[in-house]
Every structure is written in C-alpha cells, then in structure tokens.
Design a protein around this nucleic acid. Structure first.
Length: 208
DNA sequence: TGCCAGGCCGGGT
DNA sequence: ACCCGGCATGGC
C-alpha cells in the first residue's frame, strides 16, 4: 500500500485537498459533493456565502425551499437540502453547533453518531472526520474501489469496511498521509480509471 | 451528443 | 443480504 501511495504522490504531486475556510464549510461540501462534480459544489457554496447563510444557525433556521434554491447548482438540491438540515440538526443538538466540540469525541464514537444522521453514509461520514475534524480515518470512494479492482487488489463488490480495513490495517494512521492518499485516488481515477474509458496500462500504480 | 461526477435512501426480492 | 430506481445540475 505504501509504495502505491509513493507512486501516486510522485506522479500527481500533493493534492492539498479541502482546506476550506472553516471545518463547517468542509462538512457542507462533503454532503453537497455526493455523486457530484466538485465545480458544481463550489457554486453552491458561493451562493451560501454570498447570502450569509453558510453557518450552522443560518441553515438550522432556514426552510428547505430556500436552502434548496441556494444549493441548486450542486444537483439533487431537494434531497441535499434535507440532508444538510439533518446534519446541522445533529450538529446543533448533539455538539452545540460546533465541529470543534464534535472533534473531542473519539473517532469511532463520532463515526457511529454520524452514520445515524439521515443522508450521511460511510463516505460522507469519513470525509467529515478526516477533512473537517482532522482525525485519521481512510475514506473510500468509487474511484478507490474501481482503481483497486482494476488492478486486481480487491473485488469491486467488497463492502466499504473491507476496503477501509485494507488501508487502516496496513498503514500508519497518519492524518496527512490519509488525507493525500484519498485525494490521489480521485486524481488517478479521473485520469486513468473512468468507468467506460479505463487506461490501466498507462496508470502509474500498474504493478504496485 | 451522451457520459460522467469525491453517494445515499427506500422499496422490492 | 443484495439489487435497483430515484435524485439533477453542469462540464467536456
């Protein structure tokens, strides 16, 4: 696994993903980007900022229709409006509206809490934990699965936890490295592992 | 022009 | 325990 990381880092360089202005913005982005191009998410976040609504209280008190209109460019705007509100409801109700406070809860505990939130599945939960809370969990996404299965490392249909275990059981739990590694899977996936356009023979991790 | 994007839920087998 | 349809905008 580690040599794969090093190859990817050498090929694509540091990705420096998701600095975001605040952890809250990062968490919102994690929900908005579900099955969605990041460029569209940025527009939605700009709309929220421009309206002064990018905050826990603002979203908590906004009605679904108004929120949906603001996040329209991110697609699935009706379902995502509900999901954002359920996440913020959880944040306010269980952690005083503060990701800082939420980050005091041990990793596996906060992970189980997030998975209870409507609209937060394993990838979104782990993206929030890694990129907004700054705790070392390994995020698995469609690219990770596809790249690994195309290179014969694991069956694509294996469960999320099986993929997560592959990394977490075989690597140091290093925040910076987990952060970069996941982002690098997205980068390599976009270049060499599109669903109907695989270019595995040119992929830098070939044979790793 | 289709195809694709940093998923998840609910209902049906 | 899986499988599938629905959700929707915007770039290439």
């Amino acid at each position: 696994m580690l040599d794969m990381y090093e190859r990817l880092l050498e090929s694509f360089g540091p990705q420096q993903w998701w600095p975001g202005d605040t952890p809250f913005e990062v968490a919102v982005g994690a929900i908005l980007t579900q099955n969605t191009n990041w460029g569209n998410v940025e527009r939605a976040i700009r709309n929220l900022k421009r309206s002064g609504k990018l905050g826990a209280k603002a979203i908590h008190t906004m009605d679904n229709a108004e929120l949906a209109e603001l996040i329209r460019p991110a697609g699935y705007f009706n379902v995502k409006a509900k999901r954002l509100k359920s996440f913020v409801g959880f944040l306010v109700g269980s952690h005083g509206g503060s990701l800082k406070r939420m980050s005091r809860v041990p990793l596996e505990d906060v992970r189980l809490q997030l998975l209870e939130v409507h609209g937060v599945g394993p990838e979104t939960a782990d993206s929030i934990i890694l990129y907004a809370l700054g705790k070392p969990v390994f995020v698995i996404d469609a690219y990770t699965r596809r790249v690994l299965s195309r290179h014969g490392v694991m069956e694509e249909g294996e469960g999320y936890e099986t993929f997560r275990g592959l990394f977490e059981d075989n690597l140091d739990h290093d925040l910076k490295m987990f952060n970069e590694f996941h982002a690098l899977f997205v980068a390599v996936g976009k270049h060499y592992c599109r669903p109907k356009n695989p270019k595995c023979s040119e992929c830098p991790i070939k044979g790793a």
